[in-house]
Structures are given as C-alpha cells and as structure tokens.
Computed example of a mutant assay.
Amino acid sequence: MARIAGVDLPKKKRVEYGLTYIFGIGLHTSRLILDATGIDYNKRVYELSEDDVAAITKEIREKYMVEGDLRKQVAMDIKGLMDLGNYRGLRHRKGLPCRGQKTKTNARTRKGKRRTVGAA
C-alpha cells in the first residue's frame, strides 16, 4: 500500500483515481501529476515502485498544497470572512448556507436536526 502525503492509497485502484483520495487533489490534478512524473494512468497503486511513489511525493510537495496545510488554509479563509462581518461570514457564523440556497425547506445539512417550535 502506497502512502503519499500521509494518506494510504487503496491498493487495487488505478493510480489516477487513487491519488484523488488525498484532500486537495482531484482527477484533473491527479492526471497533471502523473503526466509530470511520466507514470501511466492505468497502473494500479500496488504496481507502483518505490521510485514512482517518491516521484509523485516530490511533485506534490513542490507544486500543490494538500491535506493539513490546505485544511488549515480553508479554515483561515472562512475565519477571515467571519471576522470581516460580510454577508458570507455572517452566514457561516449562523450555520446557514452561504451560496444562495433557499432555507424555508431543505438546508438540513447546514441547519442541523429539525427543532420544533411551539409544539404543545
């Protein structure tokens, strides 16, 4: 099992899809990384040699922000919005959707479990 950026990649998946298990790497970025390192997309993760894993790790370290650093950056960006007090920051602070969705119905993912008001 290959371990890249602190994430164990699934053995039987193709490398291009296995890399997407790393936070901050999608399919497009995965393909860019594989092109830069010269590794075939169709290779399985368990078929990667130590040199291949080292090349992928080096490419990711040099050019991309992933996992803990990226999560920290996103959290800081959201905190900055909340500190500014702009509309998106207020929506984050109240735990409501901040991209224009309606909240009369739906929005349960952001609002949490339904709380009945005034039921006797």
Rank of each mutant, 00 (worst) to 15 (best):
E59A: 04
G68C: 05
V74I: 12
V15H: 06
D40Y: 08
D40V: 12
K11V: 15
T109N: 09
R31S: 08
K94D: 08
R93C: 08
K111P: 04
G112R: 06
T29F: 10
G112A: 08
G6W: 08
K11G: 15
A75P: 11
Q73M: 12
A2K: 14
K63T: 09
I78E: 01
Y46H: 11
L9H: 15
I78C: 05
I56Y: 07
K104C: 13
L70Q: 02
M76I: 03
T57L: 10
L84A: 08
A120N: 15
R115Q: 12
M82G: 00
R14G: 09
I78D: 01
G38E: 02
N86I: 11
E50S: 15
Q73N: 14
K111Y: 00
I33C: 02
S30W: 02
Q73V: 08
G26L: 09
R115K: 14
T109H: 10
Q101N: 04
L81F: 05
R14T: 12
E50D: 14
G26I: 04
A2M: 14
L34W: 01
I78T: 01
N106M: 15
P10V: 04
G85H: 06
K63P: 10
T37Q: 06
V66A: 03
A36Y: 00
I25F: 02
H92Y: 03
G80R: 02
M1Y: 00
I4H: 05
T37P: 03
K12R: 13
R88D: 02
D83W: 05
Q73F: 07
G18R: 03
V15K: 10
P97N: 00
E62V: 09
V74L: 05
R115S: 11
A107T: 06
R31V: 11
Y41G: 07
E50H: 13
M1Q: 03
L27T: 06
T37M: 06
